[in-house]
């Protein structure tokens, strides 16, 4: 009766670790490599940039790519490669700062309304409906217009609109987790609501949030550089991909490298986040 060997089950006795599974996913590994490299560039641009990004050289204006300036120079003779590399700091910062507050607020509100339902949930439903009727970009621009242009105001605007998407996802996930009896067991055990929400439901509900977060960081870079392009986000002479593309816009036929290189940087980081997101969806699922 007491002889219950734990290994005697009809399932593979040795499962590969999460790390081993990750290594077998080429897409995930490529994404991780791109984002890893981007993060290093963002943290230490001074190490990798060959020149001072703000050094103006009127003798070398709008030079095409060469060994000295692999991405060419801009209309003030600044080294384009160095400016694209320095922009990593700003744009990766956008990916994090424009999403992380929205995520935190959204997760907390979503978990609470999903757990308690009732009137709070009904009010939440109306707010969500009101916000998602407007296109995301239009709403963000409207908020920036009220607060004034600039990076900080841009983060505030994106957070004010973006939390809704996290909250909606979290609410749905918590409601579906509530149908599992481990949640009922928490109530029966007499645990506090906060313990059940944050210790039990949240860790199990977080996977889709994290997957969405990766996509959202790609979107945040896109949105941030769009606003930079429109002059509502980062301000020149700040090196930011949107700003860089805007600077090259008038010379698109003659000095194409000015807009193309930052454009490639945007596409590449966006792709990196998406690949990671896809891989994480599989990796974070609890085993059972």
């Amino acid at each position: 009766m007491t002889d219950l060997s734990l290994s005697s089950e009809i399932k593979p006795s040795r499962r590969p670790s999460r790390m081993q599974i990750a290594l077998r996913k080429p897409g995930f590994m490529a994404g991780a490599a791109i984002i890893g490299a981007s993060t290093v560039l963002a943290l230490f641009p001074n190490v990798f940039a060959p020149h001072d990004p703000n050094f103006i050289d009127y003798l070398a204006v709008r030079q095409p790519p060469s060994w000295q300036h692999p991405f060419g120079t801009d209309l003030l003779g600044r080294d384009s490669l160095s400016r694209v590399i320095w922009a990593y700091s700003i744009n990766m910062q956008m990916a994090v700062l424009a999403t992380v507050f929205a995520l935190t607020i959204g997760v907390i509100i979503g978990a609470l309304v999903g757990y308690y339902r009732g009137i709070a949930d009904m009010i939440f439903g109306r707010v969500v409906d009101a916000i998602i009727t407007f296109p995301f970009l239009v709403l963000v621009i409207a908020v920036v217009a009220v607060l004034g242009p600039g990076l900080i105001n841009m983060y505030i605007a994106i957070t004010l609109v973006g939390w809704v998407y996290y909250a909606r996802l979290m609410r749905a996930e918590v409601i579906s987790q509530m149908t599992n009896d481990y949640a009922s067991a928490g109530i029966v055990m007499g645990y506090s609501d906060l313990r059940i929400i944050f210790r039990h439901l949240l860790p199990n509900a977080l996977t889709p949030i994290i997957v969405y977060w990766m996509t959202d960081m790609a979107l945040a870079i896109l949105l941030g550089s769009s606003l930079g392009y429109l002059g509502l986000g980062a301000q020149p002479p700040q090196a930011e991909w949107g700003v860089l593309i805007a600077e090259g816009r008038n010379f698109i036929t003659t000095a194409w490298w000015l807009s193309l290189m930052p454009g490639i940087a945007i596409v590449l980081t966006g792709l990196g986040f998406s690949l990671i997101g896809d891989g994480l969806a599989d990796l974070l699922r609890p085993r059972g």
Partner: peptide, 8 residues
């Protein structure tokens, strides 16, 4: 007593 053996 016990549980069925693993098919593996």
């Amino acid at each position: 007593p016990g549980t069925p053996p693993s098919l593996l």
